[in-house]
Write a protein that binds this DNA or RNA. Structure first.
Lengths: 242, 242
DNA sequence: CGATATGTTGAAAAAAGTCAATGGCAGTGG
DNA sequence: CCACTGCCATTGACTTTTTTCAACATATCG
């Protein structure tokens, strides 16, 4: 591990009322009056790939809403190896746990250039006290996180599916909403840390997918792959009729 | 799979104010006045082993608090195999998700004789609307469920640990609070469904643990094992100094 | 007392891990 | 501009772990 000096770029305060992901954001159901409280408290920040938003166990003063890019939530084992527990995409929230305890449960690291909103914990707590409108979205966020964890346990964890199948499933989950066929690229080490396999095994699985024309590099773009989403999905689901 | 006719025994309404797990229960922080609302709405029910509390996708009208015994939360794959996502113990809640959507996310099946409280969804919703005291415990429950899912992903899912180690970790999690050294017994199929391994592999791991005197059957009790918790923990954690 | 479930064990096959060598590519510094 | 270095990915050969298939044991239940 090397020390990285990351310069996060501050883009000013967020205008939540005109936010591009407003309809899916935490504050979707707030009304005009509520937004007065938000003014100047939420910062709009960019991070380069590989930046740490926060570390597991650290005291948490902020929640984050991801507006573009991808973030991995990581936990480190006693032996120093990492395990990736979730990968967050546009519209996802991270750091929700600071509303319960005050420490972060995971380490959050950017996988690509990231644009996000940084929301003070105290603001969410105050809004939640003052209006009943925030509670439902908060419950829904908890539920979504749990659903995601459950899906990883069923689809991505070992058992009844070989590495190639699970890599295909992972790639399906990494699809970019905007451009179909474009998936965010992970390092072999990261794929290994998601699936619990050796990086070499991940490489062999990717190689096999490439040879089947289900996956290809994007020339000049080291942050994405080009993927045959339908083909991968067919491989990923055991929908064979026999 | 065989059809089972299960007769659940109704023990009358619960007296939440004098509940044995009151301090850790959902309603721990309610005050005297709130309990008036609870009267006669919460049922105290017993289930035999192998009973289904509810099925994934079914409409959910109840939450459950587990007062004794163990419950598995299961999801079925397309090919009919089961995956166990969590195992709930005394004090745990299941069915929280009905507060968000109205359908259950998993199938809940008892692993042993179970005593639980059945709470109507509408009651929790009303209480949560009328008093602010329920929100914090609800958030904490969501958080606890997510923590548990994350722990399973890191400790029990494959990767950097062989079957024997993971079985040892699972057994550590199955310890009974009341009687140290007594752990709730799972079938080989269930262990397989938790760890994502074949039942035969689970059997071999258990055999190895038995031969090391870390595990033994309890004569006359098919619902428990006797385990050397310290020895298992030593096996489970990679805390070797070398 | 069979009949069915569940658990155990052995032997062979398959999957994945490990170790090591190689190649490409980006960034660095002459 | 080019060699050099470090990082990451790929590939092969070999080892280990786990699965699979099968046979057999044990227990429960009508």
């Amino acid at each position: 591990m090397r020390a990285i000096t990351i310069k996060a770029a501050w883009n000013g305060h967020s205008d939540c009322q005109r936010c591009g992901i407003r309809e899916s954001a935490l504050f979707a159901e707030l009304v005009e009056a509520d937004f007065a409280l938000l003014h100047d408290q939420i910062d709009d920040i960019d991070y380069p790939p590989g930046a740490a938003l926060y570390h597991a166990g650290a005291n948490g003063d902020w929640l984050f809403t991801l507006r573009a890019g991808a973030i991995k939530l990581v936990r480190y084992n006693a032996d120093g190896s990492q395990r990736i527990l979730r990968i967050l995409r546009r519209g996802d929230i991270c750091g929700l746990e600071v509303l319960v305890g005050s420490a972060y449960d995971h380490t959050a690291i950017t996988l690509s250039p990231v644009m996000l909103c940084r929301i003070p914990r105290t603001l969410v707590e105050r809004l939640n006290r003052d209006t009943p409108r925030l509670q439902k979205p908060l419950f829904e966020r908890w539920h979504a996180a749990l659903e995601e964890a459950d899906a990883w346990l069923t689809e991505l964890a070992a058992g009844h599916a070989d590495v190639k199948t699970r890599v295909a499933r992972l790639l399906c989950r990494l699809g970019n909403d905007g451009e179909p066929g474009l998936v965010t690229r992970l390092s072999l080490e990261d794929i290994g840390a998601v699936l619990g396999v050796a990086p070499e095994s991940a490489s062999r699985a990717l190689g096999s997918l490439r040879r089947s024309n289900l996956l290809a590099d994007v020339p000049g773009d080291r942050h994405h792959w080009r993927a045959d989403t339908r083909g991968l999905a067919a491989l990923a689901s055991p929908t064979r009729e026999n």
